[in-house]
């Protein structure tokens, strides 16, 4: 028996096509976790980046500490702390735990993305805004942040794709997303490989679509550069 014949005997590739559709709810769950964690991350990231750029120590130090802690510990550990670690205080369901843990995690990275983008805006922009009589907050809101957001789009797109893949860790706390679905289907039929391939294809589709959307946004925002 040749190797190829053996592969065809062990694996049932028809599963990949026939059962592809049963992963749709799990894919939606994956998307939901990803979007929730990025939205939470964007909000946290915006305020933390501003706090890190602040001259007030009461803002600067907590923001720096937050970023150091999040970046210095594994995301899986962060997830477990939220899901298992604080059950004595509040019990959160698995999805909410994942959204909070991943949102907090993304917040630290997004804060650094924003901080870099804000710092890259020429000081003359702030000076021009302030010389018109704008307050610091107005100058930040109207002049600096819109330009910084634009520069932040490519690295944010990157973070979005990382977040999509990181969402697979939610399978460890039984969120019914792609990874869990693949493992459950695999262990009940022993066709692990086929179901894992299905999950892989879904991840690829999701990350490709997100990558495409980010690219379109980038292009759309570039109108003022022409």
């Amino acid at each position: 028996m040749s190797k190829i014949e053996r592969v065809l005997e062990v694996y049932d590739f028809s599963i990949i096509f026939n059962q592809f559709h049963i992963f749709i709810p799990a894919a939606i769950e994956t998307l939901k976790i990803t979007i929730a964690s990025i939205l939470i991350g964007l909000i946290i990231g915006l305020f933390v980046s501003l706090a890190r750029l602040s001259k007030y120590k009461l803002l600067y130090y907590p923001a720096s500490l937050y970023i150091t802690v999040i970046r210095g510990t594994p995301i899986l550990l962060q997830l477990f702390i939220v899901y298992f670690g604080i059950t004595s205080i509040v019990t959160l369901n698995a999805f909410v735990s994942a959204a909070i843990a991943f949102g907090t995690h993304n917040g630290a990275y997004i804060a650094e993305i924003f901080r870099g983008a804000i710092m890259s805006i020429d000081i003359g922009q702030k000076e021009a805004a302030r010389s018109l009589g704008m307050t610091k907050i107005q100058a930040m809101k109207r002049i600096i942040l819109p330009q910084a957001f634009k520069r932040a789009v490519p690295p944010l797109g990157n973070q979005l794709i990382i977040a999509t893949k990181d969402s697979s860790l939610a399978s460890t706390i039984a969120v019914r997303e792609l990874m869990l679905k693949a493992r459950q289907m695999g262990s009940s039929t022993y066709n692990f490989f086929e179901y894992l391939i299905i999950a892989a294809v879904y991840y690829l589709i999701i990350t490709s679509i997100l990558g495409f959307v980010v690219h379109r946004v980038e292009k759309k925002l570039a109108v003022s550069d022409r």
Binding site: E127, M134, P146, Q147
Partner: peptide
Amino acid sequence: VGMVFQHFNLFPHMTVLQNVIEGPVQVK
């Protein structure tokens, strides 16, 4: 007190008109 800079410092994300109305609308 108006100021004009060596490097112009126009707001690149706004059109010419938006640049000019920004001060009066936001500040005044």
